[in-house]
Design a protein around this nucleic acid. Structure first.
Lengths: 70, 70
DNA sequence: ACTTTATGTAAAATATACTTGACATTCATT
DNA sequence: AATGAATGTCAAGTATATTTTACATAAAGT
């Protein structure tokens, strides 16, 4: 399933896939696949993406962020 | 650098590398390399490890967990 | 209409995560 | 002293993440 949190975080920074890719040091296609989901990126790639977007791993890549029990 | 948080979380569960590996579905060597650091595991592997140890990605794989600014 | 920017997708090549099998060391137990 | 459990490491193989090149579509601007 798609990673909408990532896509949203990127758009909040007014960044295109191409620009995020350049900053992270991968290709545009790789960013596209991560956003499309059904993909298994490496930890370092996830971390770089998070840093560029000012988010943490849990923010963008940890499931069940929505229904967290207080 | 070594991932001491992971090693600690595993030992808190009284789990050997071999046992964690079996539960996660990888080999003992892979777990060893993740703990040794200087290694770039996939996101799915990290998530599986977190789930087995009752932790989140930020808990085990996000840097700067220590000096977080309030 | 034409060009540019952003994105989706696909096939083949390359880099690297992960496996397999094996040997070595340390520590606890008998 | 001998055995077994836990871990470190290494070399060669397999699976897959990522690149490269390319073509296609839609939206926005001139």
């Amino acid at each position: 399933m798609k990673n909408l949190r990532l896509k949203l975080a990127r758009m909040e920074k007014d960044m295109s896939q191409t620009e995020l890719a350049k900053r992270v040091g991968v290709t545009r296609q790789t960013i596209g696949m991560v956003e499309s989901g059904d993909y298994n990126p490496t930890l370092n790639l996830c971390i770089q993406i998070c840093k560029e977007l000012g988010k943490t791993l849990d923010d963008l890549f940890w499931e069940d962020n929505d229904n967290e029990m207080v």
